[in-house]
Amino acid sequence: MVLSVVALVSALGVVLSKNPVTSVLCLIITFFTIAGHYIMMNAQFLAVVHIIVYAGAIMVLFLYVLMLMNLNAELEPQKRNWLKYAGAISGGALLVVLVAALRDASMPALSAESTDIGLIKNLGMLLFKQYVVPFEVSSILFLSAMVGAVVIGKKD
């Protein structure tokens, strides 16, 4: 409960804060609270990997770029009005779609004690036995993305 409140407040902080660096820091806190939720659902592996990958690697790169660009609120060009309206409308449309999709979905009650699926042993068994093909396909997808990034970067 406390965790959810912190998650929501920091998520709002990401959107509302004027300073991009504060935004990123709020996002990191959000990731931590999400990892906390995973732990409460007995998915320790998922929680730690979530922290390593998102908070530890991706957000460091974000912070890196932001710090080097050193954006300032005063130097930021004022966004045009129609852009703001377009953003609001498209965001609202997404919200409507999400609500419509979630309304009909049945939510099975989660009980923390009954699921052991998040423990690393069970997760590994599941990934490498039942879902081998999707797992490998997704890794090839990542590889192609990496190669693509290198090709784009090499062009200069």
Binding site: Q44, F45, V48, V49, I51, I52, A55, G56, A57, V60, L119, I120, K121
Partner: peptide
């Protein structure tokens, strides 16, 4: 049961 990963997570926070 994820001791090593925990250390890894904490180390990556050190940055």
């Amino acid at each position: 049961n994820i001791g090593i990963l925990f250390i890894f997570g904490v180390v990556s926070m050190g940055v």
